Simulated scan of single mutants.
Amino acid sequence: MINGNTVNTPEMELKAKEMFQDIELLKQKNDPSAAKEIQKRVNKFLKEMKMPQGGLKSIDTDKPLVKVKKGILGAAALEKAEDQLKKLPQYRNKGILVYQSIHFYEDGSINLMLQHPINSKYIDAYEYRKGAWSAPKPVLATDIERRTFPLSEIHFADARKVIQIYNAKTDQIEGAKPTSNAYITIWDNRMRWAPRTINGTRERYDIQFNNNGTLKSFRQE
């Protein structure tokens, strides 16, 4: 009996199972608005079972949805972004040279510049957002010959290695803050991963990475 009403236990178990399945699907959307939909689904169950709405406090509808920021893309998504870039129609059957830098941001976007596929004196900027690369935008550029590096020798998924290693080191240093961004700089036709320094409240460290994102060196300055 709940509030004077007789509850069919097998029916409650079935409907509860259906409700939790619906809630799990809503959580997987990773959408802040899903919290309201979850609460509606809970209230619907409570109404069907003639229970007071606001019950089932053990269901945490907010916690999984607080994280609005998706963070840097996963390894598979980074590989997909790289593959899509290589398949841009204007670069079909052509080598691609990255100019100056590549930035991997915590919102999942990627910014980079490429040497023009026809005129090597030109540079175009591209942005990757929501699973697609933007149209090229012309930019002013200098020292193009010294500041390019083959895309074929860069693996976007290595950005996750850099962040993981960097953050593991910050855990060992008092006052150091972790990062959620990674980027590549190019000079003299060589690439370097960054960030390259870790600042604590008492110490400062230099950290260097190999091209494949593994740790090259770590020392106190």
Rank of each mutant, 00 (worst) to 15 (best):
I186Q: 02
N199G: 03
V7N: 06
Q53G: 06
L97H: 11
K44N: 11
Y99T: 07
F149S: 02
Q90R: 13
T197I: 12
V42M: 13
N93Q: 15
N43P: 04
D83W: 01
Q84S: 06
N93M: 12
F156L: 03
W133G: 00
S180K: 06
K70P: 00
G131T: 01
E203C: 00
A135H: 03
K161I: 12
L26Y: 09
D107R: 09
K40Q: 05
L26A: 14
N93Y: 04
L56H: 11
I23D: 01
F45G: 04
A132R: 12
I38H: 04
K130W: 04
I96N: 00
I72L: 14
S58D: 01
S120N: 14
I207K: 06
K67S: 12
F149A: 09
R146W: 15
Q84C: 13
G213M: 03
Q90P: 00
K94E: 07
W193Q: 12
F20M: 13
I23G: 03
K94T: 02
K169I: 12
K50I: 04
A125S: 15
G213N: 01
I118C: 09
P178G: 01
F20E: 10
Q21I: 06
Q21R: 15
N3P: 02
S180Y: 14
K15D: 06
Y128K: 05
I144L: 01
Y99M: 01
R202T: 15
D124M: 05
G54C: 15
D60C: 08
D143G: 13
N189Q: 10
L140P: 06
M19T: 13
A76G: 09
D206S: 14
D22M: 13
D158P: 01
L56D: 08
A182M: 10
N93T: 11
R41P: 15
K69A: 05
I110V: 10
G108R: 02
R219A: 14
N8V: 06
G95T: 12
S33T: 10
E82K: 15
I123K: 01
Q220T: 15
Y183G: 11
I38C: 07
I38Q: 11
I123W: 05
N30A: 08
G55Q: 06
D62Q: 13
L112W: 04
K70L: 03
R219M: 09
E203V: 03
G213H: 02
Y126W: 05
Y122L: 08
R219I: 15
P89S: 07
D60P: 01
T142Y: 13
D171M: 09
P150S: 03
